[in-house]
Simulated scan of single mutants.
Amino acid sequence: MVMVVLLLLCCGGLVLVVADESMAAGKGDGGCPGGDRQPLWVFGDSYADTGNLGNLGRELTHAWYDPYGRTFPRHPTGRFSDGRVLTDFVASAVGIPTPVAYKLRRRAPGDLLARGMNFAVGGSGVLDTGYFQRNISAQIDLFQKQLRGCAPTGVALVVVSGNDYSAVVDKNNGTGAAIAYIPTVVRGLREQLRRLRDDVGMRKVVVTNLHPMGCTPYFTRPLNYSGCDPLANAGADQHNAALRSVLDELDPANRTFLLLDLHTPFVAFVNDAAVNSSSSTTTRFPVRLRPCCVTSKADGYCGQQDDAGNRQYTVCDDPDRHFYWDDVHPTQAAWAAVAVAFTPAIHAFLST
């Protein structure tokens, strides 16, 4: 897997409230979070990033350029999708508008900061990925500085989508090397989860498991988008089993940590087994393994242009029919469908 480098909207009963980008005007850099709603603190990668990856040019930071943001808010916002991403939907499940991105904090008034803050940045991992982005440990460092002595409240969301493994694949040119790296990554993740609870003082921490990585278009493209890569999916399964064991050891009573299951709904919508079933999930996304935004080059990317400014990609007419937006990131419609599956678990977790 390459760099993983993820109003009011009603979707299957889920009501989503997202802050308009224009609201982040004015000043403000802190104050202790307060109010009746729980703030959300987000750590992770591009599945969760809502604008923290700086604009370093189209080749390095695709999400700041067309066609990203085409569905919402109809222009690029640094989200790796045609619209909203995982953070937006988790915030809705928690009952708050989307928290401000750390990069935009100085333009956000205090009432926005009371929602929490998003430290996730595209390309990051549990460990150093080589993509020159703050890993989760460094993101937690920023969180502690932002608290400025305040007692932490609310919910932490930790999103790990596979950059640690993609970096190993890029370096060693093989999925087998990434699978061998799983114990190292999970040990590192365990330490950061322990740190959030014991050192920072968070009492509610939500951590995602891995989606079926072998079903992302990056892996399905060599198969002409006809099937998933079984070895990459096996690696995701091993990561998830190891993470489950870590959480059982850290929190046997399941009071502090919630394993947010992204894997099961992803499988239901995109895995080969689903296409042969009579489940309605097979018709929700008629195009499961081919992305909406398709590069015309084998090593290209969504949004790529040549030196003359000519597009080196095509975009589908209806992203809602596609589960994936680009080679690794879901569409807004896909995230909305997945959120319907995980929202009840978040509600139950926060009620205890």
Results as ranks from 00 to 15, higher is better:
residue 47 Y to Q: 09
residue 48 A to E: 03
residue 49 D to I: 02
residue 49 D to A: 04
residue 49 D to Y: 05
residue 50 T to L: 10
residue 51 G to F: 03
residue 55 N to E: 14
residue 55 N to M: 14
residue 56 L to D: 10
residue 58 R to T: 00
residue 59 E to P: 05
residue 59 E to Y: 09
residue 59 E to Q: 14
residue 60 L to H: 06
residue 60 L to G: 01
residue 60 L to R: 13
residue 61 T to S: 15
residue 62 H to Q: 14
residue 64 W to D: 03
residue 64 W to G: 00
residue 65 Y to Q: 07
residue 65 Y to C: 05
residue 65 Y to K: 08
residue 67 P to C: 05
residue 68 Y to A: 02
residue 70 R to S: 15
residue 70 R to I: 11
residue 70 R to V: 12
residue 70 R to D: 08
residue 71 T to F: 09
residue 71 T to C: 06
residue 72 F to H: 14
residue 73 P to W: 01
residue 73 P to V: 01
residue 74 R to M: 13
residue 74 R to T: 13
residue 75 H to E: 13
residue 75 H to T: 13
residue 77 T to S: 15
residue 77 T to W: 11
residue 78 G to M: 10
residue 79 R to Q: 08
residue 79 R to S: 02
residue 80 F to M: 14
residue 83 G to M: 09
residue 83 G to N: 10
residue 84 R to P: 00
residue 84 R to D: 01
residue 85 V to Q: 06
residue 86 L to I: 06
residue 87 T to L: 05
residue 89 F to A: 02
residue 90 V to T: 01
residue 90 V to P: 02
residue 91 A to Q: 04
residue 92 S to W: 10
residue 92 S to E: 04
residue 93 A to W: 07
residue 96 I to W: 09
residue 96 I to S: 06
residue 96 I to L: 08
residue 97 P to Q: 11
residue 97 P to N: 08
residue 98 T to R: 02
residue 99 P to H: 12
residue 101 A to I: 03
residue 102 Y to A: 12
residue 103 K to H: 13
residue 104 L to D: 13
residue 104 L to F: 12
residue 105 R to Y: 07
residue 106 R to I: 05
residue 108 A to L: 06
residue 109 P to G: 07
residue 109 P to V: 03
residue 110 G to S: 15
residue 110 G to Q: 14
residue 110 G to N: 12
residue 111 D to K: 12
residue 113 L to A: 04
residue 114 A to G: 11
residue 115 R to V: 00
residue 115 R to G: 01
residue 116 G to I: 09
residue 117 M to A: 10
residue 118 N to P: 11
residue 118 N to M: 12
residue 119 F to D: 01
residue 119 F to I: 02
residue 120 A to L: 12
residue 120 A to W: 06
residue 121 V to P: 01
residue 122 G to A: 13
residue 123 G to S: 02
residue 126 V to S: 00
residue 126 V to Q: 00
residue 127 L to T: 03
residue 127 L to N: 04
residue 128 D to P: 00
residue 128 D to I: 01
residue 131 Y to K: 07
residue 131 Y to T: 00
residue 133 Q to R: 15
residue 133 Q to W: 08
residue 134 R to N: 10
residue 135 N to A: 02
residue 136 I to M: 08
residue 136 I to L: 14
residue 136 I to Q: 04
residue 142 L to V: 03
residue 143 F to Y: 12
residue 145 K to E: 13
residue 146 Q to T: 11
residue 146 Q to C: 07
residue 146 Q to M: 08
residue 148 R to G: 09
residue 149 G to E: 03
residue 150 C to H: 10
residue 152 P to I: 00
residue 153 T to C: 10
residue 153 T to M: 09
residue 153 T to I: 07
residue 153 T to A: 15
residue 156 A to Y: 02
residue 156 A to F: 04
